[in-house]
Structures are given as structure tokens and as C-alpha cells.
Design a protein around this nucleic acid. Structure first.
Lengths: 198, 198
DNA sequence: CCCACATGAGACATTGATGTCTCACGCGGA
DNA sequence: TCCGCGTGAGACATCAATGTCTCATGTGGG
């Protein structure tokens, strides 16, 4: 059945195109469709065959990104175990999709009046719930609101993602840098010696 | 002397226009010049009289933002006193210009091959030096690179700026939320009770 | 070998943003 | 009151991006 092969091929290309587009559009939101196509290694014609237009492309980007991120959230099992560990799992799971997340987080407000994708709200709630759990747990301090911690997590994820793509950070450091900063902060612990990980 | 009054008026309007433009363009980089003008409360004609075109506007935005941020850095006196306090001063000083910073930080890579403004590099170095100082000081932990801490600071500044403009965070919380998270992290200190500030 | 089909390259027409005008209005000072 | 001047509104011309074609090519399967 050639149809199956056809669909598989499309899906693979689609992923690649979307990720390339996200990487480019995050930094240059005014990029031409020619540029987007070239960045993905395809022609504008093919790009246009997969996505009706710029708007459709951005929509697909949004949907795809949310889908991937929600899958990552699910895989991280945020409700299980210590909140700190859950946070670590979360960052690790999201890492492969950080580029998508960066695009969505910065250009999200592109559609003004429209309802911002409910999947986004779901993600916010999941993250907020994690931080709240950690606070009620006693693991996390309570003087930082879950909403801010959620927002801050996005910010750090995005910053780290850019730092990696720009070569200012080693890809291996991604998860550690984010989680260590987020969990422990930059201040050196006075009384807990040898905290620095291997 | 009408000329003086003229210049002053222009300068004031210019500030306002630039800040409005930054606030809009950060979230919707594809916004029309009509939209930019409307957001600033002026007509497209007047906008065009002040800035030759979109490109000129973005350039001016860049220059203005860097200028303001560097002034903030200077005012924060990063070399004086404990690095933690310097960091607090820095965030407090930058707060009024967080919108500008958000724009610059997200759309900076707009000019590809071109030399990204050297003022930007200067800011990076200043911030990096602060973190390095804190590390050599013993105040800060050494397992997070100054480059990452710099990038992370930008990310938190931007996230907080957006959270405030979107109404998800009280403006008063801006400095405290950022500095507390950056310095202390989200994890609750085990052995230092009563750390929560008033 | 032949065919189906996705792709790349390109030629248009169209749309929308932009750059450049002109002109009338309102406000301030002389 | 009259004038200078900045402004807003709008009318274009221009140009770049986009949407829509066609056609040649290459490849993979039958």
C-alpha cells in the first residue's frame, strides 16, 4: 500500500518542517516563506503544499508544539514522587521540544482576540499544580506564587533553548542548568557542604 | 526659543512611541505600522515622520533600549557591595525598562549577519562579571556558568515583564519575585527558618 | 520498462504593507 | 487676529510577499 508509505513520509517531513520553522521564526518572526522553506530544505512550493499559508503554518506550529509538550508533561508524571524530582523529569522531557516551546511562548499572543489554545491553559495548570503541590508539600517555599514559578520555568526553558542553539551552552547542560537554578537558586548554600553535583 | 521646546516635545513623544512599539512588537512582531502608530496613539503619518520606516524604528528601538539598560546598569553599581545586593539593585533599576529589554532580547537576532550591537555585548559582560565576582566571592555557587546565569537573568526579566503587562503579576512583585527566585531558588531552605521576607 | 507521484523551479496575478504626497484642522505665539 | 507648525486623514504609487498556476525532473513501485 503506497498510501501508508505516503503518510509516513509526510509525517516525518512535517515534523522536520515544523521544527525548522519554529527555530527560524522564533528569532526572526518576519521571515519570508521562502526563508522558512529554505531553512527546512524544501521548496516554497512544497511548503505551500503542506501548509496553506503563513497562518496555517503558525496554527500547525501551535498545535504541534502543544501536542508535543503535553506528551512531555504526561511522560514526566508530575504527580508522582517529590516535586523536585518531578520538575527535573519535566525539564528533561521537554528538552527535545524546547525550540517549539520557545516559539509558542514568545509568539503566542500573535492571535489577539482569539482564544489562546486551551492546551496552553492546560499546561499552565499542570505546571502550577506541580508548584502548588511542592509548596503544600513543604518542599518549596511559599512566598513565590505558582503562577510566577510557571512563567519563570517557561522563561528559563526558552533562554536555555536559545543558549544551546546559539552555542552558548552545551546541550548536555540543558537540564542541569535549568533545574539547578530553578530549584536551588544562584546563592551558595551556607551550611550544606558538597551540594555541587558531579 | 521655540527650537528648544520643539526638541523637548519630540523627545518625550519619541520615548512614548518607542515604548509602545516595543510593548506591541514583542508580542506581535508582524504588527503593521498602522497598528504600531495606533498603539502609540499617533497617526501613521506622524510615526513615519519620526522614523523613516520599519527598519529605522527597530534600529531606534535597539539603540534606545540599550542606552536605557546601560544607564540602569550604571545606576546599579554592580561592582559595589555584596553581589546579591548588586543583583537586587540591578533588577530594580531595569524594571522600568523591562519592556524594552524584552523586545531586544527576543527580536535581537533579527539582523542576521550584522554585528549585534556592541552595547549588547557590553551588557552581557557586565552581568557575567557580576556573577563571576559573586562566585569568586563565595556568595554564589560555582556549578552554574556566568554565561548561563546572565542568560537566565534576561529570561526571568522578560518573563516577569510579560507577566506584569498581562496582569498575571502585580507590578510591585516584579523585583522581589525575580531576585528571590534567582538568588534562592524555589526549594525551601531546610535549616534556615523564617527566610521568607516581609 | 513504464507509470504514478512528489518535488523543485519558475512564471505570473493578487494582495497588503509601505513610502510619499497633499490638504485641512487645531493650537500656540506674535 | 493672523501666522507658523505639527498633526491626522487620506489618496495614491510602489514593492515585496503571497497564492496559484504549469511543467520538467527524478524516483520508487509494479
Amino acid at each position: 500500500m503506497s498510501h501508508v508509505g505516503y503518510c509516513r513520509l509526510m509525517a516525518v517531513d512535517r515534523d522536520h518542517v515544523l521544527r525548522s520553522a519554529a527555530a527560524l521564526l522564533t528569532r526572526k518572526a518576519t521571515a519570508t516563506l521562502d526563508e522558512v522553506a529554505k531553512a527546512a530544505g524544501i521548496s516554497r512550493a512544497t511548503l505551500h503544499r503542506q501548509f496553506a499559508g503563513r497562518d496555517a503554518l503558525v496554527r500547525a506550529l501551535e498545535e504541534y508544539g502543544i501536542q508535543e509538550c503535553e506528551a512531555a508533561l504526561r511522560a514526566a508524571r508530575l504527580e508522582e514522587g517529590p516535586a523536585s524530582d518531578a520538575l527535573r523529569r519535566l525539564v528533561a522531557e521537554i528538552e527535545p521540544h524546547a525550540g517549539l516551546l520557545a516559539f509558542l511562548h514568545t509568539e503566542n499572543q500573535l492571535f489577539e482576540g482569539e482564544d489562546l489554545n486551551e492546551g496552553w491553559t492546560r499546561m499552565d495548570e499542570r505546571l502550577g499544580a506541580l508548584f502548588r503541590r511542592g509548596q503544600e508539600n513543604g518542599e518549596f517555599r511559599i512566598d513565590l506564587t505558582p503562577a510566577w514559578l510557571t512563567e519563570a520555568s517557561y522563561g528559563l526553558l526558552v533562554s536555555a533553548s536559545w543558549a544551546v542553539t546559539d552555542g552558548r551552552m552545551a546541550p548536555n547542560d540543558f537540564t542541569r542548568m535549568i533545574t539547578e537554578l530553578l530549584l536551588g537558586g544562584v546563592r551558595r548554600p551556607h551550611d550544606a557542604p558538597g551540594r555541587t553535583p558531579a
